[in-house]
């Protein structure tokens, strides 16, 4: 196991390096941050000064070399827009995104597994239909629409919850609720589908035919077998949340990584973009490794 994780860590480090090279060079294809930082009627001298101060006037490979050198000393560079270390900016945002993602994801996973497997138990039944339709409508409704209607109804009209911002636990209710909907719809469908396949497996049918009283036990065993695709999809959704919930964060004024990422990309704040992507990548790599380990635990036949 230790050896396996070690190998994986080395391979992931290579991926991280590849990702960094990719992002570094691709992002620099997208324009000049000087014209976005400075006003439109700034002089050429002002722009040149901005580039020189941030080392953007050097040849691309020299810039890259300098970046890697600084990175080896755990220096992610300065934010071009905020005049602060990029990694500080990213970590501040992460402190908000991480709890938001974890809470939402836990709720999604519990709700989706319970409701999805209940739906699968009587396929085509009323409960199954209701769960499917409601979750699908949720999964395909535009999130900004849901978010704004939720604010108008619950905050402005009923006055139950604050409109936006952070501070009290109440502030978290609406963002979590809106963020919950789409992954829930997706995962509930996958749970239902996998359970359907697993329940039709030969041994379950035999057990059911023989009238085994303890259906719940079978249920739990089936669930275990059905979990393989489910945790894969959960991983995908978790990765999306770690990348930040752009729309939800923007509308609710939630200072997370999604809003930071979109602002930094649109403003060409390269160092922040790079730092944010690398931090996210490490989180995603670790998560994927945990998922791969979980495969082996769920199904001991799977070995690497």
């Amino acid at each position: 196991m230790i050896k396996l994780i070690g190998q994986r860590a080395i391979a992931s480090l290579l991926s991280l390096l590849g990702l960094m090279v990719l992002v570094f060079f691709l992002s620099r294809l997208t324009g000049d941050p000087a014209v976005l930082f400075l006003p439109i009627d700034a002089t050429e001298a002002m722009k040149a000064n901005f580039r020189a101060l941030h080392g953007l006037d050097a040849p691309l490979f020299e810039q890259f070399g300098r970046y890697v050198w600084d990175l080896l000393q755990f220096d992610f560079g300065q934010s071009l827009r905020k005049a602060r270390p990029a990694i500080d900016v990213v970590m501040e945002a992460y402190a908000w995104t991480l709890p938001l993602a974890l809470i939402t994801l836990s709720l999604v996973v519990v709700a989706a597994i319970v409701l999805g497997s209940l739906a699968a138990f009587k396929i085509g039944g009323f409960f199954d239909r209701m769960v499917s339709i409601i979750s699908l409508i949720g999964a395909s409704a535009p999130d900004f629409w849901v978010a704004i209607v939720a604010i108008v109804v619950f905050s402005i009209n009923l006055g139950w919850l604050p409109t936006s911002g952070v501070g009290t636990p109440l502030h978290w209710v609406l963002p979590i609720a809106v963020l919950f909907i789409r992954p829930f719809g997706l995962i509930v469908q996958v749970v239902r589908g996998s359970m359907l396949s697993a329940l039709s497996a030969a041994y379950v049918k035999t057990a059911r035919a023989k009238g085994v009283k303890n259906l719940p036990i079978i249920f739990v065993h089936t669930l275990r077998n059905a979990m393989l695709p489910v945790i894969t999809v959960i991983g995908d959704q978790a990765a999306a949340m770690l990348n930040g919930a752009v729309i939800v964060e923007t509308i609710f004024g939630f200072p997370g990584i999604g809003k930071l990422m979109i602002d930094s990309i649109l403003q060409r704040d390269f160092n922040v973009v790079l730092a944010a992507i690398m931090v996210t990548a490490v989180a995603i790599f670790i998560m994927n490794m945990l998922i791969d380990i979980a495969y082996g635990l769920l199904d001991p036949r799977i070995r690497h």
Partner: peptide, 22 residues
């Protein structure tokens, strides 16, 4: 699989901006 990790960590937003530009 590690390539998949890279794609998963590359924000679609940045990809969109790059493709749009290039």
């Amino acid at each position: 699989m590690r390539l998949a990790d890279v794609i998963m960590s590359f924000p679609s937003l940045l990809l969109a901006v790059v493709v749009l530009y290039v």
